[in-house]
């Protein structure tokens, strides 16, 4: 009997599959948010495990900041096609043009502008549930996030009114105007994600591996040289071997110096790492509560 005991990864996988199937069974119009990043790459594999040989019971949705690492878009489109999944892309650019998203003067990063773009896509397609790849270990404010997290009409998250989730009994009810965010890999850590990528031999975009890149030092981290936030006076461009731990808006995604060019080496590096993953995103550094503020506004 003891041979049936699941390992950590098997347990987390089974839990995530269970949660995905709850979405399929309980919602009329779900979607899965696919960014091309490593967490959502895992989500796609979990969806295969949950639903094959059937097609995915939902389209994929990408909110495109337009501030991307080049290969990410190519990867995103190709992966969706390989899986035979429908991919919906809504861009921040478009949302700005339509007046749905308004940048504040001087605001270059588009991480915040993803929020209205996402909400308007949810409206447009009448999605009642959006599956995302957020994990509770990413940040303190996320530690209390639920598997099924209710949002009001403004996409807001109210920490005090979240539903208790005892056992694996999820309350998936939504009232008109509300919708749900669902996080099947809530209990995964960054390390679990990498272990899973290795175990499942998942392809990931090349920015995650060590590569040579021109970078500048800004806000305490190495940022990729890009056209959107050009190099300023007094900054020096250096060429370094770097990789990213998380992909977001290119102008605020910190690169870390690294020689890791295989999944195994990345895992090795992370086991020895001294900076949490979110620490490499500039926008979270602003205040310890910044994630909480963005969540209240509807960021995931």
């Amino acid at each position: 009997m003891s041979s049936h005991k699941l390992s950590n990864l098997e347990y987390l996988e089974s839990e995530a599959i269970y949660v995905m199937r709850e979405v399929a069974a309980s919602f009329e119009r779900p979607t899965l948010m696919f960014s091309g990043g490593k967490d959502s790459i895992c989500l796609l594999r979990l969806a295969e495990k949950a639903f094959r040989p059937s097609d995915f019971p939902f389209p994929l949705l990408n909110v495109d900041t337009g501030h991307n690492f080049d290969e990410l878009i190519e990867f995103r489109d190709r992966r969706a096609e390989e899986l035979g999944a429908k991919l919906i892309v809504r861009t921040v650019e478009d949302a700005i043009a339509k007046g749905i998203a308004t940048p504040t003067p001087g605001e270059l990063s588009r991480n915040r502008l993803q929020i209205p773009t996402l909400l308007s896509a949810i409206d447009e397609f009448e999605f009642d549930c959006a599956i995302g790849g957020a994990r509770r270990d990413e940040e303190k404010a996320r530690a209390k996030e639920r598997f099924f997290s209710l949002r009001d009409e403004f996409g807001q998250w109210e920490p005090r009114s979240q539903r208790p989730e005892p056992w694996n009994l999820y309350n998936t009810m939504v009232s008109p105007g509300q919708n749900m965010r669902c996080f099947p890999i809530s209990n995964w850590t960054e390390m679990d994600v990498w272990e899973y990528i290795r175990r499942e031999q998942l392809e990931i975009p090349a920015v995650y591996f060590s590569h040579e890149r021109e970078v500048v030092r800004r806000g305490g981290q190495w940022l990729a040289v890009n056209d959107i936030a050009p190099v300023k006076d007094g900054e020096t461009v250096e060429t370094k071997n770097v990789r990213v731990r998380t992909v977001g808006d290119i102008i605020s995604t910190g690169c870390i110096e690294s020689e890791a060019s295989t999944i195994g080496e990345i895992i090795h590096e992370i086991s020895a790492a001294r900076v949490t993953e979110r620490g490499s995103r500039a926008d979270d550094k602003v205040s310890e509560s910044s994630m909480e503020d963005r969540k209240r506004e509807g960021y995931f």
Partner: peptide
């Protein structure tokens, strides 16, 4: 750099091999 890259197999260092 190439636009994408595939994962490497069997390149795990011993330290984390057992984690999963």
């Amino acid at each position: 750099m190439s636009s994408t890259s595939t994962i490497e197999k069997n390149s795990a260092p011993a330290a984390s091999e057992s984690l999963h």
